[in-house]
Simulated assay, not measured.
Amino acid sequence: MTTSTDIQIEGSCDPRFAAVKDAFYQNFKSRGEVGAAVAVTVDGEPVVDLWGGTADSGARVPWKPDTIVCVQSVSKEIMALAVHMAVSRGLIDIDAPVTDYWPEYGQNGKEKTSIRWLLDHRAGVPVVDGARPGLAYDWAAMTGALAETRPLWEPGTTPCYHSANYGFLLGEPLRRVTGMSVGEFVRREIAEPLGVDCVFGLKPEEEARVATFLNKQNHPSQQWIDEGTNIFARSWKIFWDDEDFNSPEWRRAEVPSVNCHTNAWSLARICAMMAAGGTLDGRHFLDAEVLDRAGDIQWTGYDAQDRYLSLSLGFLMPTAGQKATGPRALGMAGAGGATAFADPDKRIGFAYTMNSMDPDPGTPRPHALIDALNSVVG
């Protein structure tokens, strides 16, 4: 469909959800969108699947239905889902110590850390000892360093969003119990059965479809990194100093905290499966009771970095800053605006992906889309 002569919006939208289409158009017209996609499912069926704009820095390559893009911390939602799938299969107990699966982790005050505390960001290791540029792109070196790291405070006591380390902390136990890397597990057990694009560690043939990530320099996270001594800045010292989320190492490594490459349609379909209790199109991924428990809120309030959050077992739960369509929606947001959630009560899957980081910390682009969705289903 074409909404304007100067802004091309492609895809499909059920007429009942025209408000979402209109909000998506306004993101391009008045909120600085460059390239993006939005998708919504209800009862597993697509009702919105839209994309528009451009996928490169020169505004020459149009966004396509198979364009994929880095979704930053929405990666953590996929990482948490993978762990809960292992829980559903009896491979991991969330209240067991991490050392049951990763013995080397039991050093320097981390001996009693549970999988639960890894999931809900209370592990106490948002910063890795011995951080150096490029460490994140070497799985063995990174997890070895985390095993030796002394926590900043007693594990289980202090909420702190683990921006960079989260995927390694959970990914290593998953690797030990499944015999697959996180990237392999997500491809084989989530993406391929659902028929979607969702990967950690791009293959060469996939890189041609990746949108260039833009405008990192204008995002508040760059200001935190430039400050140098805060927890966030220290946690990001494992990446190249000039990492712009487009380097070959960023795209090809498995960094399941932040470098999932996917698109809105794929995320919405994954969330549709979660919203349906773990089964979609006759394919069972995990038990409904495991998903129900995954939504149990573990803490709500300001974390050690003064961020107001509500965390369940691996998911951001709705707050004023984390909008959704219902109070039990399991979701995650990525730096710059990418957002995905599964609402089990309204059986909605929602996803928004983009390549230009929104400099406004209030993330008006996804919020406008979710507000529009709520005007229809609310």
Rank of each mutant, 00 (worst) to 15 (best):
V38P: 04
A320S: 13
D22A: 10
G53T: 12
G156S: 08
G349V: 08
S375G: 15
V47D: 00
T143P: 00
R122G: 08
T300R: 14
P151Q: 08
E172C: 09
A233V: 04
V42H: 13
E289S: 14
D303E: 10
V186A: 11
A23R: 02
G109V: 07
V125F: 09
N215K: 14
T178Q: 12
D56T: 02
G11A: 00
G144M: 03
A233T: 06
G171Q: 12
P103M: 13
R150F: 00
R176H: 09
P103K: 12
M273A: 03
A372G: 03
F285Q: 02
A264C: 11
N218Q: 13
D306Y: 02
L313M: 15
Y25I: 03
T41A: 03
S310K: 13
W51F: 08
W250N: 04
A59T: 12
F200Y: 14
V48N: 03
T67Q: 03
V210H: 11
V182R: 11
T325W: 03
A264W: 03
G130K: 13
I68T: 09
G295R: 07
E33H: 14
T229M: 10
T229S: 14
K110G: 07
R307Y: 07
L174Q: 07
P220V: 04
E206P: 05
E10R: 07
R347Y: 05
A211D: 11
S221H: 04
D138Y: 01
G228K: 08
T157W: 05
G130V: 02
G334L: 02
G314D: 09
A275E: 00
F213Y: 12
K323F: 00
W299H: 05
A131I: 12
L311P: 01
S221E: 05
L330K: 08
R176I: 04
V182Q: 13
A37R: 06
D306G: 00
L286F: 02
L152V: 13
K110L: 06
L267T: 05
H162L: 10
C260L: 14
P159M: 13
V199P: 07
A253Q: 11
C198H: 01
G336I: 03
R234K: 15
E206M: 13
A37T: 10
L280F: 09
D93Q: 14
K29P: 04
N246R: 11
L286R: 04
G167R: 05
R188C: 08
A82F: 14
D129W: 09
D292F: 03
G337R: 03
R132V: 13
D303W: 08
P46T: 07
D49V: 08
R347K: 15
W240D: 15
S221K: 04
N215G: 10
F17K: 01
G90R: 03
Q26T: 12
K64W: 06
L169Q: 05
L169P: 04
A164K: 06
